[in-house]
Each structure stands twice: as C-alpha cells, then as structure tokens.
C-alpha cells in the first residue's frame, strides 16, 4: 500500500506541474499570403503551421516549412520554392515574439482581445523586427490567434526580376489564423 500512495503522489504532482506549465500548442495553423497587382493575383496557403503560445509569459512562436505553401498553379509553386524563396537553402520561416499587453488578455475568460505582438520574423534567412496588432479569441475549448501583416519581399532579400515585376506586389499580405486547443 505504501507503493500505491507514492504512485498517486507522483501522478498528482505530475498533473499539478502539467497545469502550471500549460502552453498552448497548435499543429495545424493556417498562414496565407496574397499578392495583388492589376495583372495577377497570387495566393498561397500553408496549413501546416505550428505554433506555441505561453499564456504565462506571453511568448509566441510560429514556424513553418516554405515547401508546404500550396499554390493553385503548380509551376508557380515550383518557381516560388526554386527562384524566390530558395527553400532548399532556407527551408523554414519563423517568428519568435512576445505579446506586449499580456495583462489585458484573460485566457480563462471567453472573449475577443486585441493583442500587440512584437518580435523577430525570419524569412529567406533574413531576420527583421516587426510589430503587429492581432486578435486573440478565447472560447470554451480553444484559443484562436489571428493577425494580418504586410511583408515586403525586398526586406528579406527576395529579388523579383524585371520581367515579372508587374505580376508580384511590392507588399504581400500575410494572414495568420491559428487555433490552439485548450485541455
């Protein structure tokens, strides 16, 4: 019986620590980018975005594989990987940052909260500091984080040749939509 008590103690301890260290994890976040010009609209979606959000500290991380972006035009997807993002050399894009107004967000209470996020965005091997507003929606069984930000390809050393300058926007709209399960 002594063993049994120790076991329960361990289980209890385990769960206690589990709860205090609870981070929100998403394995199927969605990031979409959209480039609009009068000549052509280009859209790609990545449904394999992983993210960790720590409600305790407010730290947020996103990462994804460039190759997981899906285009309607397969040739465009190939060129995106081969000519623009050079995904063999730079396979990932990532963001590591912080929610700056963490005190205004109550992860225990349902509601829509606006979040101010800042951090380092790494694309194509280039890291830039960014600031972006976002929204955090807390509901009974999940937390959803959304944000829209503008990314300039030239900031990340992504060169666009003259022949396609008309087709690729200087400012690319990136939409982030990530749901974390609460448990």
């Amino acid at each position: 019986m002594k063993n049994k008590n120790i076991l329960f103690l361990f289980i209890f301890l385990g769960f206690a620590m589990n709860i205090s260290a609870q981070k929100l994890i998403s394995k199927n976040g969605h990031i979409r980018f959209y480039s609009h010009t009068p000549v052509e609209d280009i859209e790609a979606n990545n449904f394999q975005v992983v993210s960790i959000l720590d409600p305790e500290t407010g730290s947020v991380q996103f990462t994804l594989l460039i190759k997981s972006f899906e285009f309607q035009k397969k040739l465009m997807q190939e060129h995106f990987n081969e000519n623009y993002m050079e995904s063999d050399e730079y396979p990932k894009a990532s963001f590591t940052g912080q929610i700056n107004n963490l005190s205004e967000i109550n992860f225990e209470k349902d509601g829509n909260y606006s979040a101010k996020v800042s951090g380092d965005l790494t694309i194509h091997g280039v890291t830039k500091k960014i600031n972006t507003p976002g929204t955090i929606i807390v509901s009974k069984d999940k937390v959803t984080a959304t944000a829209v930000l503008i990314v300039l390809p030239e900031d990340y050393n992504i060169t666009i040749p003259d022949v396609v300058k008309e087709k690729i926007a200087k400012e690319v709209e990136v939409t982030i939509d990530v749901s974390y399960n609460k448990n």
Binding site: G14, F15, M17, N18, Q61, L65, S68
Partner: peptide
Amino acid sequence: ILFFPFILSAQDIDQLLEEVTGNTTEYTIA
C-alpha cells in the same frame, strides 16, 4: 507519468514542426 509534464514543456517548436511535416520524404523538383 512522472516526467510527462516535463516532456511536454521541453518540447520545442522545431520538434513540433518535424512532428507535423515530419519524417517526410523530400522529392526533387525542377
């Protein structure tokens, strides 16, 4: 059970990405 919570918190984001896109085979393009 004892170490489960530690495993969870020690999980880093790159591991997580590998879990999702995971041990995939990368086919040569172009």
